[in-house]
Amino acid sequence: MSYHKLEVRNLYFSYPDGHEAVKNVSFTIYHGESVGLIGANGAGKSTLLMLLVGLLLPDQGEVLVGDVRLTKKTLSAIRQRVGFVFQNPDDQLFMPTVYDDVAFGPRNYGLDEDEVKLRVERALEMVGIPHLRDRVPFRLSGGEKRVVAIASVLSMQPDILIMDEPTSALDPKSRRMVINLLKGFDHTKIIASHDLDMVLETCRRVIVLNEGEIAADGMAEEILRDKKLLESCGLEMPLSLQRCPVCGTSKKPL
């Protein structure tokens, strides 16, 4: 199925102030893949994500979802298939109740209210929060907000999920919950994060960005062990791969 494929070809983007945020980026992500996007602050992760859903349009190069090229005309169709979860759920949850928020997308695509209800219930079910449906987003805990934000995207039944820092600012228990959720989805996923342990757990493939360019693209197990590469890109090895600070032994055998 080439249907869920996401392809980026020679992408360039610079901001109005002249800052070149993305330089000659190309990659293809295939159906069902789970890809971690890592890089230091300012490496261009967020810009790249925004380019993938057309919040920014590239100066050069192209983005293809399935075999459809992303342009202003195809924007609406593509956004229906690519779900984007924001870094800060407070930006994403803007309606007065959880139900209305999860229903926002489906309603905008003109589904009738029975179908909307079905989709909302299914989305809430998928992330395990049917009990939150009548709650007000701003009174939820950080972890709950995050999960609702994911549900609000799932209700649009996207093929591809893009997440910006899904585990930032979460307590350990909520973080674990989100990780387990991500592992359970069979969508094609792109996860941008500094939480390299989470990336290691949820993604088989990793793309490393450094100053707007791709520094590495390959298996997570290999890249996340490459101390030299990671440090040259302003990163460090995931804690779970580092040697134990007390006894000095490696936790996971190579």
Partner: peptide, 15 residues
């Protein structure tokens, strides 16, 4: 942006 990504075009659909 978040509204846009979920198909918002200026029309409010209240259900």
């Amino acid at each position: 942006q978040a509204m846009n990504l979920r198909g918002f075009t200026g029309e409010y659909n209240a259900g």
